[in-house]
């Protein structure tokens, strides 16, 4: 009887070959029709990015610049198209943000440029692109990643916006800040809110959900930090805008109380203070300004130091400020006038105290992967069986 000897498979070099006419099928199955929740894509975070890169590597290997250009253009246009179609779905946007970043990191890691090869294994160095320098395409991908990031932030804000005032100020459990309810009622707030209302718990649950989705998609930790900083800013800005324009809040003692509470919060955990303080700064200034106004620090000094942080609407708050007892001073008319004059030439913002639409500039620090391309298994459910392993 003949003995069946299994033939040793030729070493897989971590490249994927496809026929030119299959390019549209490739981006359709891998980008346009891919479900971010599918089991297949969650096995290896960034899998679509790795597959695209392995296809690109083969086009580079056969020295076909037209195929390289065409694949990059199709992939980028497909990502834009899916984001146009499902741009209000956090999961989709997060998924393509992390995959676009991973693709960008791959283009750097395997560029052959020494500055990006420091953490590569010898095998990864062997897998570097051999014919083309794609530095310009990296720039385009980076621009795309910025657009996706901004879309992610907008998407997140749309979900958070309706929760913030209700959760932070009306059903909150931090005592002594909002003054909405009589003291006796405060502790009765349960974490299960009535229909249409939100609690601090529901905001935290929502933030947790954003975080775990991003982790599941393999989003770079440095990028997650930037998203969190932005979330923190939005929640702080919307809360503060609402809070400080409440009549009962516009008093010296309340302003001091906020300033003091925030100081305590940041002191509670010194490790986060340095990082958080930068983000908190805009939140701290309005009460500080009000307090400063009341203790007669010249308005020019305050404005010159901090003009970046507050809009002309600060004047509204200063005008609302009312002494609650005989020991409190009224904000001097001169102080308000000076501030008004100094801010007159500023472009009028529709925002109140803080610009809730502000988006911090984003960066995508290089984050190489230790994953070896030749070990990647492609699940059948991705429907890319027409790709040949090379």
């Amino acid at each position: 009887h003949p003995v069946n000897i299994p033939r040793r498979e030729k070493d897989f070099q971590g490249m994927l070959e496809y026929k030119k006419e299959d390019e549209l099928k490739l981006v359709k199955n891998l980008i346009l029709e891919l479900k971010p929740r599918g089991v297949a894509v969650n096995l290896i975070p960034g899998l679509p990015a790795y597959i695209l890169f392995m296809c690109l590597r083969h086009a580079d290997y056969i020295n076909d610049d037209q195929k390289v250009r065409s694949l990059l253009t199709s992939a980028i246009n497909s990502i834009k198209k899916i984001l146009k179609k499902r741009g209000d779905d956090f999961e989709t946007v997060s998924f393509w943000l992390s995959n676009t970043c991973r693709f960008l990191h791959c283009l750097k890691q395997y560029s052959g440029d020494e500055q990006f090869m420091k953490h590569n294994t010898p095998k990864q160095n062997d897998h570097c692109l051999s014919n083309f320098d794609l530095a310009e395409y990296r720039q385009v991908l980076s621009d795309l990643a910025i657009q996706i990031y901004q879309q992610l932030i907008k998407c997140m804000e749309n979900i958070l916006q309706p929760m913030i005032v209700s959760g932070m100020l009306e059903h909150e459990t931090i005592q002594g800040v909002s003054g909405v309810k009589p003291t006796g009622l405060r502790k009765r707030t349960s974490s299960i809110a009535d229909e249409g209302t939100y609690t601090l718990d529901s905001i935290i649950r929502q933030l947790n959900s954003f975080h775990s989705i991003m982790c599941q998609h393999g989003t770079d930790p440095e990028l997650i930090k930037q998203v969190v900083k932005q979330q923190f800013y939005v929640i702080g800005a919307v809360t503060l805008n609402n809070l400080l324009l409440r009549k009962d809040m516009c008093s010296w003692s309340k302003g001091m109380q906020i300033r003091y509470s925030v100081t305590l919060e940041t002191r509670a955990d010194l490790r986060i203070t340095a990082r958080v303080c930068g983000a908190l700064k805009p939140v701290l200034w309005p009460p500080e300004l009000i307090v400063a106004g009341l203790v007669f620090i010249p308005a020019e000094v305050i404005i010159a130091k901090n003009h970046f942080f507050f809009s002309v609407q600060i004047v509204k708050v200063l005008n609302l400020y009312t002494p609650v007892n005989a020991f409190e001073e009224r904000v001097s008319v001169l102080f308000i006038r000076t501030i008004q004059t100094r801010l007159r030439d500023r472009k009028e913002s529709p925002q109140l105290l803080m610009d809730t639409k502000l988006i911090y500039p984003v960066t995508f620090p290089f984050n190489p992967s230790s994953l070896a391309l030749e070990t990647i298994q492609i699940p059948g459910s991705l429907n890319v069986g027409f790709l040949t392993r090379v």
Binding site: D65, T73, N77, N131, F132, E136, V140
Partner: peptide
């Protein structure tokens, strides 16, 4: 150390220019 390989720089269009090379024309047209 071997000399680093010379790679050909591929000129890239901008994002907006890329969009004009729409690969999905058939689907998008009414």
């Amino acid at each position: 150390r071997p000399p680093s390989r010379i790679r050909v720089l591929l000129k890239a269009p901008t994002l907006a220019e890329m969009e004009e090379m729409n690969i999905f024309e058939d689907e998008d047209s009414p």
